[in-house]
Design a protein around this nucleic acid. Structure first.
Lengths: 350, 350
DNA sequence: GATCGGCGGTTAACCGATTAAGGCGTGAAG
DNA sequence: CTTCACGCCTTAATCGGTTAACCGCCGATC
């Protein structure tokens, strides 16, 4: 605690294109053109410039470049998470990983801000865009009638929305067909013989929650299953446990439960075991989003898997297209795939 | 898939200080000074300028500001994770949350890049710093003889290292006393009556792994416990399960195991149950880093808890001090606290 | 032989903010 | 009555790169 760190000071003037120009004996503009692959520079000169730039360890000053009307080479992502939900979901780390991969290949960087609510998230986008800090944005946690959508539209900020087109307005959506995944799962459970299936869902306000809710109800109707009332949670283990307990202690106890994320599913598994129910003999469980977590518990959880990394990558790629002015349609990613594991089986004969 | 999103184009020229100056009838400099709280502007003028700026929705162009030698108002973090480890650890999301909180309160933003190895992480820092995109950096996953440390020192980039001072060179360290936590845990296990304790650790190259390894060996010696060879993993559930299986099937089976993260501990718990051992009667488990995950499994895991959010916040605060040129000492955070839960008990009488 | 069209460059102006240096009243001190 | 010090503001120059406009030269074309 005593040692004072003394970071050496010499801010060591960085070389600029003017330095390179002087050394090579040409004008700044030629250097700029050469370094940017613009025409109007002979190959010989170009090579000389490249060599000197390399030797000097030249790095473009992005501020100056941005000031001259060029791109900022960055995109923004404001993540709205109340503190306690942070870190509970592997989903976002993976999504960010996928986004980052594409961006860094294009030498773009990601400006990330974790905020407490959508209001402040919008502020972040507004500030970044106003400051010309970003060229585009990615919007997550899309809600119904999301106020951020019209706001971003009005700002003219190129934006990709991770969420269903029904809620993305004129912004570009990247989404997956959650309804199909729900249907597939329900058909699977029905085929196993289940007649009473419960659902423990995520936050009500989110678009994808609503879509899954609807698909669930529709599938129950189509397959002639008893539709238990869906229970909504905040994705935390505590609420997942509470909701599961409620469902399992109700008179019409379900023989299978579909969860909206892995954390609540794992919590539900513990609750079932506490109550003396064995999984999958007495109760089947299905988790949304596969993860190491879903695989290490006993029994391993049947899950709706999707390649989240690729999902993020698609979103980033779409955004880069949008920024570059290339014609962009929304992108529908692959629907989550049902991966049966040890947590699902036929219901107990009664 | 057919709908082509047509983000409205009018890039709508943003107001600049020149616009404000023209409207108010003063010079650009006065506007700049007024908006930055610099002296030399009368209160009346200042108020008028503020009003016009507000009305126009003026946002400072950070590129221009950065170009003029001011701060970039951003710090960089390059996260080195092989793709498959991404999202497995809640640790980083929480850490980032804490960092972000402090930064955004200071109107700083975080440039984040997820890279595959340290080499590319260093490249990111170099590019950001060269481009004047960041004012400082945070270094994580500190390794022994980490090549990034001398490189960053030489670059003169203000950097806070999250890791033990022994490996941070002249950069500023922010760390917690892992050795003390290991000691506390071992004393606790010894007091319960355990004599043979195993340890399933993280990556060998990391500084904190080495420190914990040493503390573990020292504690075993001091307390007269059998020192089983430490098994190193990559923090994934698979390796945690494999290592646990190996340990439990060895002739000198331990009665307690200390894990280096929560994922491996949960995997270990499943393995124990598979092998017919009940926890904590036959085997005690301790996880490093508390998390919702550690609490939802049955039995809930005894864990070494620390406030990761605060840890990140301290690092960010230290970095801001460093950037501002305030005298900075390293910061030693609170040591992880042992939180006993249901996964630890006295060993079986033999 | 005069004209046209590129190529390979150049100079000038500009992006939007900041810092440095200076000017002009006014009131107080000498 | 001068002189000095300030308060309030202005002009000029600068950061590092990009874009626009223009220029001389050489070979091909008519």
């Amino acid at each position: 605690m005593e040692q004072v760190s003394q970071q050496q000071s010499p801010p060591a003037k960085r070389p600029t294109i003017a330095d390179i120009a002087r050394i090579v004996g040409v004008s700044k503009v030629s250097v700029s053109n050469a370094l940017n692959g613009q025409p109007g520079v002979s190959d010989a000169t170009r090579a000389k410039i490249a060599a000197v730039a390399e030797e000097l360890g030249f790095v473009r000053n992005s501020a100056a470049r941005a000031l001259s009307g060029a791109k900022a080479a960055a995109v923004g992502l404001a993540l709205c998470r109340p503190a306690r939900m942070l870190g509970t979901e592997p989903f976002f780390m993976e999504l960010i990983g996928g986004i980052e991969k594409v961006l860094s290949d294009a030498s773009y960087s990601l400006a990330l801000q974790v905020v407490s609510d959508h209001e402040r998230g919008l502020e972040a986008y507004r500030r970044w865009w106003g400051e010309r800090h970003i060229d585009g944005a990615i919007l997550v946690d899309l809600r119904r009638d999301d106020a951020r959508v019209p706001a971003l539209e009005e700002m003219g900020l190129p934006t990709v929305v991770i969420g269903h087109p029904s809620g993305s307005g004129r912004l570009t959506p990247v989404w997956s067909d959650d309804a199909a995944a729900v249907r597939e799962t329900m058909e699977y459970l029905a085929a196993l013989g289940h007649r009473r299936v419960g659902r423990i869902a995520g936050l009500t306000g989110l678009v994808h929650t609503a879509i899954r809710d609807e698909a669930f109800a529709a599938a129950c109707a189509d397959l002639g299953l008893d539709a238990l009332p869906t229970v909504h949670t905040d994705y935390t283990g505590e609420e997942g446990a509470r909701a599961t307990r409620r469902l399992l202690l109700s008179p019409a106890r379900p023989t299978a439960i579909l969860y909206d994320n892995d954390i609540t599913a794992v919590a539900g598994l513990s609750v079932a075991q506490e109550l003396g129910l064995s999984v999958p003999q007495d109760l089947s469980l299905v988790a949304w989003d596969d993860s190491p977590l879903a695989q290490v518990v006993r029994p391993p959880l049947t899950a709706l898997s999707r390649d989240i990394h690729a999902y993020g990558a698609h979103a980033a790629r779409t955004l880069l297209d949008l920024i570059a002015g290339r014609p962009v349609t929304g992108y529908e990613d692959q629907a989550p795939q049902l991966t049966p594991r040890g947590s699902t089986a036929a219901p107990p004969a009664r």
